[in-house]
Design a protein around this nucleic acid. Structure first.
Length: 425
RNA sequence: GGAGAGGUAGCGAAGUGGCCGUAACGCGCCCGACUCGAAAUCGGGUUGUCGGUGAUGAGCCGGCACGUGGGUUCAAAUCCCACCCUCUCCGCCA
């Protein structure tokens, strides 16, 4: 959420940002409501000040043992008027908040302006896509023929967009996750957290998933519980309504959790295999940083996520999302896209974003300088490090051999009981 | 699921209708004094948010906030109602 005073004083900057994002918010209505809100507040506050003043006089008179009936009588109806105005103010404030919550973050100056993903900019490439002497199979064919993926039974017990991994595939999923965690914990200094994967509405609102994107989420019936679409939600909100000592920044957490997404509106896309599921596992990196260094930290974060692909030897590219492709809460995002030979394309495997103070304001996450006066909002960042299922897809497709076997990347072998090659059972 | 206790500032905690949200007291933290320096000691300071004014700063003025939401009252941390959360004991349970 943007600062209500910033929006009031910089309406043109907000309109400009909305235009760059191709987002529609009725700013004229918003401004009219905001003005009404302030007028009402001024009116009701004046009445309350009068009431408080009179109450003080009554108290003083009673203390002196005098009769205060005259003052009390003069207040007739004041509280009723205050109550009526208060109700109006509350109603208008709710409307203002609704719109304010629907205004997306302002894209950073370095974000390329464009309508959709075709305007995204490739920032760098790493690795050479291997040239195969045979037609590379896709990950579904590989996983099924190697006996690791059972899509039929997944559909039977849950439905479409679920997967059952068996044997080596289940082990590979665990191996990838643990490998990623070890790198981020041991080499990049992140502290691991294992949070709840069910959260309440307040938490979902803190990071910006609600109120706008309820349709993308799973909600538990008859409760205030939601399944997290990413560990970003519980981990960022760990420090909601807290003031962190400045010396603890940057505060870096990684978390390995399942993620749940309804994938509403993606019918027909990526219906095969492990690319787009209702439930998948992800190692997430979340950082709480000082505002002045958040962009430097975003570069660092992106490189840390890239490290995983480099160690696995998987070719990828880094893309700066354009304004029209940017997520609602993000001021700047780099997507990391891994090479998938069977699709002959780069596909998203990580998304690294700087939310500046957008989430921190919603969630109430501040920091305070030791001995300093007042608290300021932190900047929050997060990035996948990485999506585990999609990493498995990339490993299978990039490391396959002509005979249908798959070579296990060396760094994973210690996590796979030394297994070097995955062969049909 | 049953019974009980409790939610007040960074933490602990006092506070049964007005002089208590400028929130006692203690701890922590910050500034100062003392000291060669430190500890101890002494003095002072230390919530957030919204509105107005200022320059989107500082300051000043005002409103609100004692778990949340209602109610009673001229006036609520305090009285009444509902809900949420935490802790203890019992039951159940991986």
């Amino acid at each position: 959420m943007l600062d209500i005073r910033f929006v009031r004083k910089n309406p043109e900057a907000v309109r400009e940002a909305l235009k760059k994002r191709r987002a529609a918010v009725d700013m004229a209505e918003y401004e009219a409501l905001d003005e009404q809100r302030r007028a009402l507040i001024a009116e009701v506050e004046e009445l309350k000040a009068r009431r408080n003043q009179a109450s003080k006089e009554v108290a003083e008179a009673k203390r002196r043992g005098e009769n205060a009936q005259a003052v009390i009588d003069s207040l007739g109806g004041l509280s009723e008027r205050i109550k009526a105005l208060d109700e109006q103010a509350t109603a208008i404030d709710a409307k203002v908040q609704d719109i304010l919550m629907a205004i997306p973050n302002i894209p950073h100056d370095s974000v390329p302006v464009g309508a959709d993903e075709s305007a995204n900019q490739v920032v760098r490439l790493w690795g050479e896509p291997a040239s195969f002497s045979f037609a590379p199979k896709d990950h579904v064919d590989l996983a099924v023929s190697l006996g690791g993926l059972d899509a039929e039974r997944a559909a039977k017990i849950a439905g479409a967009r679920f997967a059952v991994l068996t044997g080596w595939a289940a082990a590979l999923e665990r191996a990838l996750a643990q490998f990623m965690l070890d790198v981020h914990i041991l080499e990049h200094g992140y502290k691991e957290v294992m949070p709840p994967v069910i959260v309440n509405t307040k938490t979902m609102t803190g990071t910006g998933q609600l109120p706008k994107f309820a349709a993308d989420l799973f909600k538990l019936a008859e409760t205030d519980y939601w399944l997290i679409p990413t560990a970003e939600v519980p981990v960022t909100n760990l420090y909601a309504d807290e003031t962190l000592p400045a010396e603890t920044l940057p505060l870096d957490h990684c978390a390995y959790t399942p993620c749940f997404r309804s994938e509403a509106g993606s019918y027909g896309r990526d219906t095969r295999g492990l690319i787009r599921l209702h439930q998948f596992n992800k190692v997430e990196l979340v950082r709480f940083v000082r505002p002045e260094e958040s962009y430097e930290r975003l570069e660092e974060l992106t490189r840390q996520a890239e490290t995983i692909l480099q160690k696995l030897g998987l070719p990828y590219r880094v893309v700066a999302l354009c304004s029209g492709d940017l997520g609602f809460s993000s001021a700047k995002t780099y997507d990391i896209e891994v090479w998938l030979p069977a699709q002959n394309a780069y596909r998203e495997i990580s998304s690294c974003s700087n939310f500046e103070d957008f989430q921190a304001r919603r969630a109430g996450i501040r920091f305070k300088e030791k001995g300093g006066k007042g608290a300021n909002l932190v900047h929050t960042l997060n990035g996948s490090g990485l999506a585990v299922g999609r990493t498995m897809v990339a490993v299978l497709e990039n490391c396959q051999q002509a005979d249908g076997s798959v070579v296990v990347p060396e760094v994973l072998r210690p996590y796979m009981r030394g297994l070097e090659v995955i062969r049909p059972a």
